[in-house]
Nucleic acid binder design. Sequence first.
DNA 1: CTGCGTCTTGACCCACGGGTCAAGTTTCGG
DNA 2: CCGAAACTTGACCCGTGGGTCAAGACGCAG
Lengths: 210, 210
Amino acid sequence: MTSASARAERLDSGDGRQHTEHGLERKQQLLDAAAELFAAHGYSATRIADICTAAGVAKGLFYWYFPTKGALFAELVRTMRLRLRRTQGAVMDPTTDAVTRIADGAEASVRFMADHAAYFALLDVERSDPEVAEVLAEGAGVYLDDVRRLVEEGQRAGTIADAPSDLIAVGVLGAVSSFSNSYRNGRLGSDIAVDELAMFVRRWVLNALR
Amino acid sequence: MTSASARAERLDSGDGRQHTEHGLERKQQLLDAAAELFAAHGYSATRIADICTAAGVAKGLFYWYFPTKGALFAELVRTMRLRLRRTQGAVMDPTTDAVTRIADGAEASVRFMADHAAYFALLDVERSDPEVAEVLAEGAGVYLDDVRRLVEEGQRAGTIADAPSDLIAVGVLGAVSSFSNSYRNGRLGSDIAVDELAMFVRRWVLNALR
DNA sequence: CTGCGTCTTGACCCACGGGTCAAGTTTCGG
DNA sequence: CCGAAACTTGACCCGTGGGTCAAGACGCAG
């Protein structure tokens, strides 16, 4: 253990560094500022100096909290991924059948992505940085596994068509992201409501599964 | 008109500049080299100097043929788009019904994307450059319009479910790109054959339309 | 008060790579 | 052979922006 007499206020954030409560707040300020700037101008167009200016701190301080720009991005992505999964978990009633759970999850995801449009715009905008590419691929894999498991459960119960489960899973995830992306980019005309879209995707997914 | 006595061999490539036949070949060498490098290492990781080295010419020559790096990319994208559309056009028999045409187009697109995987890998890898972002968005719009028109035709004929045509179009395009992307990224396991995938997507699309 | 670790600053460094340029060379028509 | 325009070269320029650093401020425990 690191110094048995560690100060009470000192918090270990997982990586090596020790941050005080104030330090964690500062870190969050940087994350918030970065999220906003990334959303507005994209990842690579946002300079570290910009993030610091927006957060009202000197540039050098950035490196007190993050080793690289990509690390901050990764933290942002992982946090949002956690939130999305929690949201999905909240609506997916484990006592119902797999088909319903998939549809519920898809619908909730569409709503979530519409709510956090600015953030999700980031995800299909930057993979040049290998650090960034990795965390993104990691996310794709997680969701694919989730859905595939559910599909297989449905197939055992006979409620989902018999076809390679990974193909079906890709189809479901692809639908959610395609519709969400198009909605976000305004390719669907601004007149459509989120509710309408979410319901449409639900029906689309249900139709695909049977 | 630009010099009525223009040389016979002088070819106008659309932009202001006049290229000789040899010039066009050289330009193509650069395009080919760039395509290969982009596919291997990504857009931004490929330096102009790399492209020139690969093509066996000095760096300065690049700017004789292209105003910027993004312009070369745009030309690459537009060329490939043209090829894809031609491929689609070849399989979509105008005498058949809209549903069949959509399914044929989707199937052909999946095959085409699998054939040119290295190239298509580029498309979801780089939008930081605004020049790049524009040409990509332009492409998305074109395909969406194409499919939407077909969907509306099918709806008039009563062979496609009655729902907003742009939503259905997004779903179809999303399916094609999702499955193609997953296949390319190896998320579908390397054992699946292109034929298998193409047929699956065809059925998926047909199921979605009815 | 002292010492230590956290926190903060802003000037500085410098590799990188896109883009420029002046000086050629080649080609071809007149 | 002359001139013009296409073509080719490689050294050079320089903005950009990620990352470093030495110095100092702050806060707290002992």
